[in-house]
Simulated scan of single mutants.
Amino acid sequence: MTGEIPRVPAQRAADEGCAVALDLRVVVHPGLTLSVPARLRYRAADPYAVFLDSHTDLATPITWVFARELLAEGLRGRSGLGSVRVRPGAGERAGSVLITLTGEGGSVVLRAPADRVRAFLARTESLVPTGRERARLDLDGLLRRLCDGGAASPGP
């Protein structure tokens, strides 16, 4: 496999979204990792973004939102600046994707199986192919919500 994300013809799903459950490994210390239940989510209504819910066993998971393109590029090489960075694993971590999240309290490195992330991205492509995101945006609705003082983005 070349590591490229397969192009899938556009298809409509009933819920217009997809998700995949992940068992992320958190690198606590060299040689010591902990398991964190997580989920990657995508909604066609928010076509540029992916949602990473961690600690899905909690009543309210911790959610990070970042660009689908950042995740896709991170399968092939280093991607992202600032609070979210993604890169492929190397050496003994080959077959993994390393996601670094940085917040006020510091940084954490999450290790996800690359094949699961690749399959998730292929599912997002079936909903909204890369390059066709703009056609899925409801710019009039967004402008209306902003002018009315409402939320800029539809709910999860």
Rank of each mutant, 00 (worst) to 15 (best):
residue 1 M to W: 01
residue 8 V to A: 04
residue 10 A to G: 05
residue 11 Q to S: 06
residue 14 A to T: 11
residue 15 D to E: 11
residue 21 A to S: 10
residue 21 A to L: 07
residue 23 D to L: 11
residue 26 V to Y: 04
residue 27 V to Y: 04
residue 29 H to W: 02
residue 30 P to R: 08
residue 30 P to Q: 10
residue 31 G to A: 02
residue 34 L to S: 13
residue 35 S to H: 15
residue 36 V to Y: 09
residue 36 V to L: 12
residue 37 P to G: 03
residue 38 A to V: 07
residue 39 R to G: 00
residue 45 A to I: 09
residue 47 P to N: 03
residue 49 A to L: 03
residue 50 V to F: 03
residue 53 D to T: 03
residue 54 S to R: 13
residue 56 T to H: 01
residue 57 D to H: 09
residue 57 D to Y: 03
residue 58 L to A: 11
residue 62 I to P: 00
residue 65 V to K: 09
residue 66 F to E: 01
residue 67 A to V: 08
residue 71 L to S: 00
residue 72 A to E: 05
residue 72 A to H: 04
residue 73 E to H: 03
residue 74 G to I: 00
residue 81 L to T: 13
residue 81 L to I: 14
residue 82 G to K: 07
residue 83 S to Q: 10
residue 86 V to H: 00
residue 86 V to C: 13
residue 87 R to V: 06
residue 93 R to V: 07
residue 95 G to S: 07
residue 96 S to F: 10
residue 97 V to E: 07
residue 97 V to H: 01
residue 97 V to I: 06
residue 98 L to M: 06
residue 98 L to H: 02
residue 99 I to L: 15
residue 99 I to M: 07
residue 100 T to M: 12
residue 102 T to I: 14
residue 103 G to S: 09
residue 103 G to K: 14
residue 104 E to D: 14
residue 104 E to R: 11
residue 105 G to Y: 10
residue 105 G to D: 13
residue 106 G to A: 10
residue 107 S to P: 02
residue 110 L to Y: 05
residue 111 R to C: 05
residue 112 A to M: 04
residue 114 A to M: 00
residue 115 D to H: 15
residue 117 V to N: 02
residue 118 R to L: 05
residue 119 A to V: 08
residue 120 F to H: 03
residue 121 L to C: 03
residue 121 L to D: 00
residue 122 A to I: 09
residue 123 R to T: 12
residue 123 R to V: 09
residue 124 T to L: 07
residue 124 T to Y: 02
residue 126 S to A: 15
residue 127 L to Q: 05
residue 128 V to P: 02
residue 128 V to M: 05
residue 131 G to Q: 08
residue 131 G to R: 09
residue 132 R to W: 05
residue 134 R to G: 15
residue 135 A to Y: 10
residue 137 L to S: 04
residue 137 L to K: 07
residue 140 D to C: 06
residue 140 D to W: 08
residue 141 G to K: 12
residue 141 G to H: 14
residue 142 L to S: 14
residue 143 L to S: 11
residue 144 R to E: 14
residue 144 R to T: 15
residue 145 R to D: 05
residue 149 G to S: 12
residue 149 G to R: 06
residue 150 G to W: 05
residue 150 G to C: 12
residue 150 G to Q: 15
residue 153 S to R: 14
residue 154 P to R: 12
residue 154 P to G: 11
residue 154 P to M: 10
residue 155 G to D: 13
residue 155 G to I: 10
residue 156 P to D: 14
